[in-house]
């Protein structure tokens, strides 16, 4: 445990500048998001606005988040989490630490980082719930988290891919494309006319409930497990 703490200390020191930039990017994004919500709220007549319009707004906002995230350092970034070839890993291998210790450090750092983002999103949630319909909020947050967690999973795959197949750049592109595609697919899905005449509001609510279950019962453990496994494999891999 002492070794894990030491490694975490080292990782934190090494990634501090990168993490700070990402956090600042996230906070700027959050601030813009809050301003936009206020703007929407003040300029829209909710009685006249249809669910379809609101969902379209959401789509625009998600695109905006997505681009800003990338510009500001992205919410999750594979180069940050992936064990780097070269000096640091060489050093690690000569130390009496296991691949498990190192993978554990990466996962705990990732979760610690997520707490920061969750804190930010919590602020957004409280603010948004005061101004928007709660159902839209649940929907948007779900999509937001889903994308975030899937991105972690993909990041793990990127790491595996980078180490096993050396297709690093291709994997990053895939990550970015999926990061953009997932929210859009979900929004399009939510805009489908309901076959049984169920009100759209009810439909979105059900979708949100399913997403919530998926997120916390399946996706969170799966993403964390995959991420840990990817890091373990990366650290177990020796240079040839």
């Amino acid at each position: 445990m002492k070794a894990v703490n030491s490694l975490r200390y080292k990782e934190k020191l090494l990634t501090k500048p990168e993490r700070t930039k990402r956090h600042i990017g996230f906070l700027i994004m959050l601030a813009i998001y809050l301003v936009l919500i206020t703007g929407i709220n003040q300029s829209c007549d909710w009685d006249l606005l249809s669910w379809r319009h609101i969902s379209s707004f959401s789509a625009i906002l998600f695109f905006f988040i997505s681009w800003l995230g990338i510009a500001g350092g992205a919410l999750t970034a594979a180069p940050y989490s992936k064990p780097k070839e070269g000096k640091e890993s060489g050093w690690s291998y000569a130390l009496p630490v296991t691949a498990k210790d190192q993978a554990k450090v990466k996962l705990t750092l990732k979760l610690e980082d997520s707490i920061f983002y969750l804190g930010g999103i919590a602020i957004y949630s409280v603010y948004a719930s005061l101004h928007l319909e709660i159902i839209i909020l649940i929907f948007m947050l779900n999509v937001f988290f889903l994308g975030f967690l899937i991105a972690i999973g993909i990041e793990a795959l990127v790491s595996l891919d980078a180490y096993w197949l050396s297709k690093e750049k291709l994997s990053y592109m895939l990550l970015m494309i999926l990061w953009k595609v997932i929210p859009v697919v979900l929004i399009v899905f939510s805009l489908r006319p309901t076959a049984d005449g169920m009100p759209l509001e009810e439909s979105i609510f059900r979708l949100s409930t399913i997403q919530t279950f998926l997120l916390f019962l399946v996706l969170v453990p799966a993403a964390c497990g995959l991420y840990y496994y990817a890091m373990l494999k990366a650290y177990e891999t020796r240079a040839d």
Partner: peptide
């Protein structure tokens, strides 16, 4: 980006 002082903390936990 590390310092000798950092190394003392890191190695102190590892060895």
């Amino acid at each position: 980006s590390l310092t000798a002082r950092d190394l003392n903390v890191i190695f102190g936990g590892i060895y």
